[in-house]
Design a protein around this nucleic acid. Structure first.
Lengths: 231, 231
DNA sequence: CGGCTTCTTGAATCTAGTCAAACTGCGTGG
DNA sequence: CCACGCAGTTTGACTAGATTCAAGAAGCCG
């Protein structure tokens, strides 16, 4: 346990399966709390999947990368969300903290044994898996069939639904490149899109990491593709 | 049971949860066989999800549609694949036969009761769900980050891996529009792409519904984004 | 054989991407 | 405290890849 925290850790990129620990009681049994700083890696594509996680605090981006560096973000995980469930074998994606984040880690075998025995654990796991599938399906429609402006509307509507507001504003912890890689766009298109949404009165941007939704109904219509004049 | 099959059934669009029946013994217990003609609907977005299915024969397209008709195909299901598993509530997508298709139908409750009891059923269900998530993730990367030619390569490589060849040729039961709506492209781009792949020696097209893969390795490299000069 | 649907090809348009420059906010150090 | 540097964001100009619209070819069914 000596000198576990190197001076370089604040900019760390290394995989981090053991960090500062705390024991917790939680729905999947006993877990260990891991704390991650911005851009720290929880696990990487190709690692053996020994654990799964629940976010306690913060935000995690999970993504897959192509050999030439193109990146597709699969999900932004928020407090309460589960992450890193794999059936067998290796990680199919990389998970990194976006901001200071705390996750509870459970050993995978912990689940296997209990799932067969405890119906409630089993149901919870099913719910998580079905939820993931449902999200992925909506993500597919968005990526495959929506325009840039619709994608941004979709993103903001989802964000509004999944996170709580701070005196009228939503936190945007991820940067423009993250948003772009989530929506299948370029960083510049995201930025231009936000500017346009602001000009058109959909939203306001107090600063780059905060959004106020001015007209949710209209934004939702945009997200659903009901605004034909959405250049 | 009289006059169940109307004359118009060959072009039917109606939901079809009860059709010609046969009893079968299968891994999820007793099921009923349903037979579908091309373009017949197995279930529709919004229906109550009372059953799930396994494909015995044929191909099914599952998709979601936007109000203005834009369509995203989520999956092409082939013999052996499971389909229509929903956690609770209504169908999130529509499933239609592409060609003459036979599926085994199981009532959903059938599973709920058994899953809690039988570890093997449970594991099978988990495997199906994890498989679906894995597929969806690859689909996301393709839709979000690949070029038209890479998408076509990806599609053909997947097809080659999932279906057996008929004397050197793969069946392409779906039409160009289906492929386009699966890959997030236009029908014309798919057609042009196939022509280009043919000219460049990747594939041959004996006819519109048959492909021969001439150079699998190169096609796979294309699909992975390792061919920079893929206009 | 004729009519219909599906597929292919062409030409023009347009959306989003790329490359590049300027701006902003922030933390550091003089 | 202000200047500097840096990372992230915004904006601009141009380009490219894919879509759209449109016409022609090919296969399929009756």
């Amino acid at each position: 346990m000596l000198a576990m925290h190197s001076a370089a850790e604040s900019k760390a990129r290394r995989t981090n399966e053991a960090n500062s620990k705390e024991e917790t009681e939680a729905p999947f049994g006993l877990g260990v709390v891991l704390r991650l700083k911005p851009n720290e890696t929880l696990f990487s594509e190709g690692d053996a999947a020994a654990s799964f996680y629940q976010i306690k605090e913060g935000v995690i981006r999970s993504f897959r990368m192509m050999i030439d560096g193109r990146r597709q973000i699969i999900s932004f995980s928020q407090p309460g969300d589960y992450l890193g469930l794999e059936w067998e074998g290796d990680r199919a994606m990389t998970a990194e903290a976006i901001i200071d984040t705390a996750v509870v880690s459970y050993p995978r075998r912990h689940l296997e044994g209990r799932a067969t025995a405890d119906v409630r654990v089993q149901n919870r796991m099913m719910a998580v898996l079905f939820g993931g599938l449902h999200n992925a399906q909506e993500h597919l429609v968005m990526l495959g069939r929506q325009t840039a402006m619709e994608k941004l509307g979709w993103f903001l509507v989802r964000l509004a639904r999944s996170s709580r507001m701070n005196n009228g504003a939503l936190a945007l912890p991820m940067n423009r490149t993250d948003i772009a890689d989530y929506l299948g766009l370029s960083m510049e298109t995201v930025s231009r899109g936000f500017s346009l949404l602001t000009r058109e009165g959909y939203i306001a941007l107090p600063d780059a990491h905060q959004v106020c939704i001015r007209n949710f109904k209209r934004l939702d219509a945009l997200a659903r593709g009901e605004v034909p004049t959405a250049h």
